[in-house]
């Protein structure tokens, strides 16, 4: 059984007075297996953000199903959604979304504190994660005192500490310089290597080619997908790049 199963997903936005309707997602179907690292690519307006919002249970689909770990997400009660999100999903955002009133450590603890875990357990969980991400020395600093790359690593730690079933990353390299980007992507691969499932939305081919599989979305459907397979990084980069050109020029599948 797949970890995540998305079938016939459709999302229609209507304007406030029910005038014109915008079809953000038409018919999305894909599966993510346990331990996979999947990138989703697409132009602005292709519906990737809508898709991610639905996967994150921040938005409800018009029709279709999202099944995580055998559980239909649309069946979860509104009151339980936040708890469900906290327990099963980890988030990494483009602009880090660290809270500036907390130290990095407290930022990372936040989801566990909300879940009411004792301090000892939180601390024990943090130690290995912090050493993997190389932020042990920064834990008592405030977000404004560290660099963008370090902030993003703290954000990754925050996503990992709940041991989520799935990590959702939204343009995680979008606000980083190239060196920090590379470091972060390497960390994602590392985390994935030890079994963490990751779903990442990105614009960056560089980011996408660290993934095991890339899904391309256009006009609300999955337009194409590529597997890294045995190809080298350069080859995979080339393949993704070609597909992006195809997407942009609008020709049919080649």
């Amino acid at each position: 059984m797949s970890l995540l199963e998305v079938s016939a997903l459709k999302k229609v936005y209507s304007t406030r007075f029910g005038g014109s309707k915008v079809e953000a997602l038409r018919d999305i179907n894909f599966r993510v297996e346990q331990g996979e690292y999947v990138a989703i690519m697409g132009e602005s307006g292709s519906g990737k953000t809508t898709l991610l919002n639905i996967l994150a249970a921040l938005d409800k689909p018009t029709s279709g199903r999202v099944i995580l770990d055998g559980k239909d997400m649309s069946k979860i009660k509104e009151s339980a959604v936040a708890t469900y999100r906290r327990n099963n999903l980890g988030f990494v955002f483009q602009d880090f979304n660290l809270l500036d009133t907390f130290t990095l450590a407290d930022n990372i603890y936040l989801p566990l504190v909300l879940a009411g875990r004792p301090y000892k357990e939180m601390h024990d969980r943090l130690v290995p994660i912090a050493s993997t991400l190389g932020i042990q020395k920064l834990l008592n600093k405030y977000p404004y005192e560290v660099s963008g790359g370090e902030k993003q690593r703290a954000a990754v730690a925050r996503a990992l500490i709940t041991e989520p079933r799935l990590i959702l990353a939204d343009e995680p390299t979008g606000a980083l310089d190239s060196r920090s980007s590379d470091e972060l992507l390497w960390l994602f691969s590392e985390v994935n290597r030890v079994g963490q499932t990751i779903l990442m939305v990105t614009h960056s081919i560089n980011a996408a080619c660290t993934a095991g599989r890339v899904l391309f979305i256009k006009d609300g459907v999955v337009f194409h997908q590529l597997y890294c397979g045995s190809s080298t990084n350069e080859q995979f980069y080339q393949k993704i790049s070609d597909t992006m050109v195809l997407l942009a020029t609008g020709r049919n599948r080649g």
Binding site: S79, A82, R85, F93, L110, P111
Partner: peptide, 16 residues
């Protein structure tokens, strides 16, 4: 506003 937005995304319920 943005802080509570983040917290809600991370899984803070409206009640909290």
């Amino acid at each position: 506003q943005p802080r509570f937005e983040t917290m809600q995304k991370i899984g803070m319920t409206k009640n909290e």
